[in-house]
Nucleic acid binder design. Structure first.
Lengths: 215, 215
DNA sequence: AGGTAAGCCTACTCGCGAGTAAGAACGGAC
DNA sequence: GTCCGTTCTTACTCGCGAGTAGGCTTACCT
């Protein structure tokens, strides 16, 4: 016995521990700068175990994306579904859940969306897919909100537009929150609703903004 | 004569050519996956020239960030300054210039803001700095817009918030634009103004959004 | 107890890519 | 012509990190 044998654990558990560690390291270093040895060490395991269970560095990263993406999307959707009857309140509930999630799992967010241009098309596609799936959830709510108005002058394309505004703004606000720790997730979500949703409602009511007439 | 001597050009010119190539390759592959040989080849030069002029891969990347960041910021600022007297029209002009810039120089944008978590603190700091400098330009306009109202219920912190919303939304909308090529930069900027600026104006006017009273 | 499969490790290989040494060709200046 | 500085190249070194070979150990089953 080499004195160095660690506690044995079933594969299921180890896999999750490895992914836990990987999310931290990928988040901190980025995909390429991340070193598998560091991940395995943080997971309390040796490198070959990582390869045995996850296949390759790329496979490991994809596993991270999949798991974290699923968690985030579930958090959003479940909150939205429990958020009342109107799209408005559902969107609000979803946004609260979103900001709560990224507050608590900053690493997940970083791994999910701050790695876009990196590595071969395989992973890039995975990352794009993950972001799109979140955007789609938001767009669905916005579309429902628009559809409530019959005479609406906004259509499906506008829902996509607003969805991107919301997701992009939320992403960026993640940074803002770091410098304003006194603002919790709920307050940030409320602020965002106040700007974007109110703006959209105004546009729906026909009060648009137009640039001053030019030449 | 080794038949392989290329046209000789002064350092100034070569440096720019190298940076041109580097922006393309960094944008396509990401910092770590980018290979200096590919950059030098694309620049029509041999690798040692890159090291002679830019020092290291890191130095090369920083040169890219600096140059592209400066270009983008100038584009925004010059448009804003020429955009009339009110913060409103200046912001509008700035946004138009921004979207026009990223439409035409997508690579620059990708290199500037889609590389955050990568490499040592040195470059990460540079990237953060670049994004911040753009955000600051926007925030200044928003703050001016808010300050126009005397009885404003929004303050400096809100300007920062709205600035982050705008920059984040704009970032995300670059993806949306790729899937909607029929929308040019001006139309996207107009849409964004319609949502965000109108929303903010409403809040300034006191029409806020509040969640339905909860337990 | 003996077999066996799952969990785990040490100690490698080996290619890729950052960075460099050493000098060749060109273009003036005098 | 012949010097000198700049531009440019071929042809390396060398470390780092992804991935692996091969085997040891513990838990459980019969």
């Amino acid at each position: 016995m080499t004195a160095k044998q660690r506690q044995r654990l079933p594969r299921r558990v180890r896999e999750q521990q490895i992914i836990d560690a990987a999310v931290q390291v990928f988040s901190k270093r980025g995909y390429h700068a991340a070193v598998v040895d560091e991940i395995s060490e943080l997971a309390g395991i040796s490198k070959p175990m990582v390869y045995l269970y996850l296949g390759s560095k790329e496979g490991l990263f994809i596993a991270c994306i999949r798991r974290e993406s699923e968690r985030l999307r579930s958090a959003f959707r479940e909150a939205a579904e429990a958020g009342g009857d109107s799209p408005e309140t559902r969107l609000w509930a979803g946004l609260r859940a979103f900001f709560a999630f990224v507050t608590e799992h900053r690493d997940s967010w970083v791994v999910l969306y701050r790695q876009a241009s990196e590595l071969g098309d395989v992973i890039a596609a995975e990352v794009v897919q993950a972001r799109r799936s979140v955007t789609d959830e938001v767009v669905a709510l916005v579309r429902a909100g628009i559809a409530e108005r019959e005479d609406s002058r906004l259509g499906g394309k506008d829902a996509g537009f607003v969805g991107h505004v919301l997701v992009g703004a939320a992403d960026s606000l993640t940074d803002w929150m770091e410098r304003h720790p006194e603002e919790d997730a709920d307050r940030v979500a409320l602020r965002l609703m106040n700007i974007v949703w109110v703006g959209m409602r105004q546009v729906l009511d026909g009060e648009t903004w137009a640039p001053p007439a030019g030449p």
